[in-house]
Write a protein that binds this DNA or RNA. Sequence first.
DNA 1: TCTTAACTTCACACATTTCTGAAAACAGCG
DNA 2: CGCTGTTTTCAGAAATGTGTGAAGTTAAGA
Lengths: 169, 169
Amino acid sequence: MDERREESRVDGGDDEATVSRFVERFAAQLVQAGMTRMPARVFAALLSSERGALTSAELSEQLKISPAAVSGAVRYLAQVNMVSREREPGSRRERYRVQGDQWYTALLERDTMMKNWQATMQEGVDRFGLDTPQGRRINDTLEFFRFLDEELGSLMRRWNAHRAERLDG
Amino acid sequence: MDERREESRVDGGDDEATVSRFVERFAAQLVQAGMTRMPARVFAALLSSERGALTSAELSEQLKISPAAVSGAVRYLAQVNMVSREREPGSRRERYRVQGDQWYTALLERDTMMKNWQATMQEGVDRFGLDTPQGRRINDTLEFFRFLDEELGSLMRRWNAHRAERLDG
DNA sequence: TCTTAACTTCACACATTTCTGAAAACAGCG
DNA sequence: CGCTGTTTTCAGAAATGTGTGAAGTTAAGA
């Protein structure tokens, strides 16, 4: 039952207020980027935790939110693949872990979104035709998204190379 | 006073419903990308207009919104440099025009945002130190944003080259 | 099978956001 | 200098979003 060995201390030995300041600032940034508040705070807390994983109760206490709020936030985060759920053997507790080393690549994996933009712009071009000013204007945008779509792929390849080099060297 | 030559017909000769469908779909996409509804709709309408410019009254009528809503939307769009205001000489009306051929580059010019992310991540690294797991985790993110910042610059340069080629050839 | 800790769902209260109508401010024109 | 068409401001109504408490569900252990 009692397994709060280092859990009662904030991870890393920093004081709570200090960690909290970072968590909230980070969360605010995620909110600005379009994430809703609770998932943002939960994710920030997980990323700032020593093990990259916390239980529902820990999150609830650290962020001063209800278990219901944790549940909702985690559901969202799991859905978009930013955290995974782990069952702790021999306990009813669940543990939520930040998914992968490179969570931030999700920020660019707007693959679906990119396709949506392209479809919308294509509709506009079809609708108006390239013989109209607005058709050409929209086509320009379409071309850009196609370009961007390709470029982001090679960008991520370069990042992985860059990162591997840094970690090896 | 009466200068509704082709303004009463929807630009391009398409029927209103068809244009409206595209405008709303495009606007929805902008909303998903973080823009608020009214600015999104106004911008979509301007981009889909033949001349790339409409008066307040035209926007109000086409989108079925109050002049107040147009005013607010346009104020925002002008602030973020996506539309410019023009005074029509010999009239009290104002005309709003989509700014520039390449409005969409604004989507990537998250320059300020990028710096904010970097500052936040730097704070996290300082806070935790590279000798902690969470410090290293956050540092990884920081490195990514630095990389991304540089890459987006060269990406835009490639886009401009690509585009120039397409328009010339 | 029963008990109970843990998580989830749901209805609702509270907060925030968004759009409108009305009044005020502005600017061209006589 | 006042008149009038147009845009802006502002208080508040309406719509949305968000987090909680309480009830419901699940599953570990006896």
